[in-house]
Design a binder for these strands. Sequence first.
DNA 1: ATCCAGGAAAACG
DNA 2: CGTTTTCATGGA
Length: 281
Amino acid sequence: MHTMNLSPDQQFSLDQTLGCGQVFRWDKTDAGWWYGVVGRHVIKIRQDSRKLTFEGASVPFITQYFSLDLDLQLILETIDRDPFIDSAIRRCQGLRLIRQPKWECLISYICSTNSNIPMIRRRIGTIAEQFGREIIFEGKKYYSFPEPSAITCSGGKALAECRLGYRTPYVFNTACAIGNIKQWEETITSMAFEAARRELMKLSGVGPKAADCVLLFAFQKHEAFPVDVWIRRIMQQHYIRNLSITSGLTGREYDCIRRFAREHFGEYCGYAQEYLYAARL
DNA sequence: ATCCAGGAAAACG
DNA sequence: CGTTTTCATGGA
C-alpha cells in the first residue's frame, strides 16, 4: 500500500477525474475505494482530502496516469475566458485529464458511437473478458485489455459475441490495421495535431469525434475538442447562436464548433471540453 | 411503441 | 462535393 500527499496548490479530485466519463474501466465501492484495470494491473485507490492511498501501482505511475505533474491551475486560467466555463470549472474542481493507454482508448471510443456510457463500459468489459488476461485481485477476477493480435487471431468469431452491434467490423479492422501497438503509438505521438487526426481517421470506425477523444485522452494533444451531442447543445446554447438545425452533426458544423473552441479557449481547449461535458447535468 | 445514447460509413444527389 | 440514411443494441 502506497500513500501520496498532494501539495496544497495541487488541485485534484479523484471522483471528478474517474467519474466524468473520460475513462470506462473504473468502479467505486460504497467504502470509497476506486478499482480499475490499467495495463496488466488492478489499481485500488482512494482519496481523503489531500492524501491518496493506493496499491497496484507506483507513485510515479499514479503521478503520470492522473497527470499530477501538470500545473492544473495554470491550464484552467488559460481556458477561463467567460462566465459559463468559469462556472463549469468551479463545479468540477480538481478534474484532470487522464493519460489513458492509447490502444485501449482507441477501441473504447470506436465502441462509443451512438451509444451511452453504461453501454460503452459493458462493451469494453466484455472484450476484456473475451480476449484479455485474467488477473486475480483480492480474490476477484479482473481482465486486462487485450492486444490487437488477441482479437485478430480468433478470426472475429469471438468478437461477434461481444454485442458490439455494427461496431464489430470496426474493431476487427482496426485491430488488423494497428498490428504493432508500440510502432503505432510512436507514429501518432510524433505527428502534429491535425496530421495525427487525419491519420487516426483512416482507421475503420474512427471519425472526427473518436479521433479527437483519442488524441485528447490518450495522446495529450490538448487542442482536440471532441464534439458529441451534449457539447453541441452546450455550444449552440451558450456560444454559437446560429448553427443550422439539422438532425445529424455535419462535418462542416463539427469543424465550425471545434475551430471556434480552439480560438475561444486557446491551446488547452480540450480541458474546456471536458469541464463543459462533466458539468452538463 | 418511440426515442435516445460521448457517431461513422455508405448511399445519394 | 456536402448532405441524408442506415447501422445494432439496450434502457427509459
